[in-house]
């Protein structure tokens, strides 16, 4: 089994986001980054399938040089090699354009399985994987929470809404978008980190005509969401004072205790 895993680097979840002067994007200069949550689970699941069936796990990430940290961590956790689609300003690509670039980067690999995350933690389009499947001509399943793969068959459990699930079977090659929590993620060991240093990271350039094509959907401006509810903020920055006040309010005002 050759499995390609798509991993995106996104702003750290706890990072304070500052909007740029033009109001068109965030200031990225002093941000810290991490891997988008479900992509981490996608890699874990790929490693488990490889452990069971043998084969190779290839990680693919698109973005500027800083995404090497996501790639190196994936190699340290056990991926065999990586493809880095290098470019600045690729964040403005629509999911359709991004999927074209990613499809071209991995097409020659002829993978048996492609895993993506179900949704990125920054743009949250929830589309790139499904479009990639269409472009590569692969059947797909989304929001996958269990993978039962053998040499003969692929059966996957999909999460539906409000606690419902459904199994789907399909032939390989296929593409799955992986939901967080599918299995427990392993961390890189010292040995893994050492081994990663010798692993191949192939850099490729995105097709210029895709990158320069104006996007069919464009972000005009970004801003803090308007608040709809008047929250009573207690303690004025002093968490302990806030706690005392809150207990009183819950008793005398909300009357829930």
């Amino acid at each position: 089994m050759k499995i390609v895993v798509m991993m995106k680097q996104v702003a750290n979840k706890d990072a304070i986001l500052r909007i740029n002067k033009e109001g068109t994007w965030i200031e990225e200069g002093d941000l810290s980054f991490e891997v988008s949550e479900s992509d981490g689970y996608a890699l874990e699941e790929a490693l488990r399938v490889r452990e069971k069936l043998g084969g190779e796990v290839v990680v693919c990430s698109m973005g500027p040089q800083r995404v090497k940290s996501v790639i190196k961590d994936a190699l340290a956790r056990g991926a065999d090699r990586a493809i880095h689609v290098v470019g600045d300003n690729l964040g403005h690509l629509s999911p359709y354009a991004a999927a074209i670039v990613l499809a071209e980067a991995i097409r020659e690999e002829k993978p048996d399985l492609v895993f993506t995350g179900l949704q990125s933690d920054d743009f949250g389009y929830a589309q790139t994987g499904v479009i990639l499947a269409e472009l590569l001509g692969l059947p797909h399943a989304t929001i996958v929470i269990e993978v039962d793969a053998s040499a003969e068959k692929l059966r996957v459990k999909r999460e539906l809404e409000s606690g419902w699930y459904q199994w789907y079977s399909m032939a390989t090659p296929a593409l799955l978008t992986i939901q967080s929590g599918i299995s427990q993620i392993r961390y890189a060991t010292l040995k893994g980190i050492m081994a990663a240093k010798k692993k191949e990271i192939k850099e490729v350039a995105p097709p210029a005509e895709i990158v320069s094509r104006p996007s069919h959907q464009r972000i005009e401006k970004i801003y803090l969401p308007q608040k709809t509810k008047q929250t009573q903020l207690l303690g004025n920055g002093d968490a302990k004072a806030g706690a005392v006040e809150l207990a009183q309010k819950l008793h005398t005002e909300a009357r829930v205790i």
């Binding site: 969401p225 608040k227 709809t228 509810k229 929250t231 009573q232 903020l233 207690l234 303690g235 920055g237 002093d238 968490a239 302990k240 806030g242 706690a243 005392v244 809150l246 207990a247 009183q248 309010k249 819950l250 008793h251 909300a254 205790i257």
Partner: peptide
């Protein structure tokens, strides 16, 4: 905070033990 009636902006590790004690007192 957009849907909260009451909010404390701060460290939960500071707020929660006190909140717990205050609630016990009230009860």
């Amino acid at each position: 905070f957009d849907i909260a009636d009451y909010g404390i902006v701060g460290d939960l590790f500071e707020a929660v033990p006190i909140l717990t004690e205050e609630i016990k007192k009230i009860k």
